[in-house]
Design a protein around this nucleic acid. Structure first.
Lengths: 122, 122
DNA sequence: CTGTATCCACCCTGATACTG
DNA sequence: CAGTATCAGGGTGGATACAG
């Protein structure tokens, strides 16, 4: 957050980040891809139980546009398309991990607070 | 800005993070607070040109709920309320900074390869 | 299999007005 | 000053149907 411009909040890098992967399925997709290395469209759909073709397609397109994932299409019958993380996508993973750790800490704190509201047992 | 954020089942910690500060004004608020140490409601509103009472109030409440900011109310006339980052809030800053660096790198990449093909650019 | 098009519902956001 | 109530508009995600 080196440059915070109060007059143009949407142009800050952090806001850009939220824009890039701030929708519901972006992170789950990246997490899934990070574990499976390469996945086809329907394999992703199966892993991300609940996602629709529309959402998956949109997310993949945006992620591809931002060079976070790579799309390889084979002109065969039946069609085959494989998705995988780019190096940029992989470079995001450690950061996601830090976020993950921070959030886990927050979750603990909130849990503790929730328990403190309980009248003292014993 | 739903106050039901805290009720939503969160599948992953990262989703929780987006939930916690994934809305438009959360980061600008945190950035502003990180620089001013302590700010009153209207001071924040002034810094975050364009935000409404509603959005600011909701964001502050959520941020406070997650123990990221601290709210101190003085029962005076006129009323005075001061907001500041908690230690948790401050611990988030370095991570945001990493995100910032990563995104800046991504921005460079995208600028080099595709300047005018933003999917949601319109 | 791999998507796209369309409609629909919900949430976020902001504007305005009002209260303590 | 510091919010809250209410309403409206826009964007996003989901369901279904259809196409290459």
């Amino acid at each position: 957050m080196g440059n915070n411009r109060s007059d143009k909040p949407l142009t800050t890098p952090v806001q850009y980040l939220l824009q890039v992967l701030g929708s519901k399925w972006k992170l789950p997709i990246l997490c899934t891809l990070s574990k499976k290395d390469v996945l086809r469209f329907n394999e992703l759909k199966r892993e991300l139980a609940g996602i629709t073709n529309m959402s998956l397609s949109n997310c993949l397109q945006e992620l591809e546009h931002y060079k976070i994932i790579k799309r390889v299409q084979y002109l065969e019958m039946p069609p085959r398309v494989e998705y995988s993380l780019t190096d940029n996508g992989k470079s995001l993973l450690p950061i996601l991990k830090n976020l993950d750790e921070w959030v886990n800490k927050q979750l603990e704190i909130n849990c503790e607070k929730a328990q403190e509201t309980e009248p003292g047992d014993s």
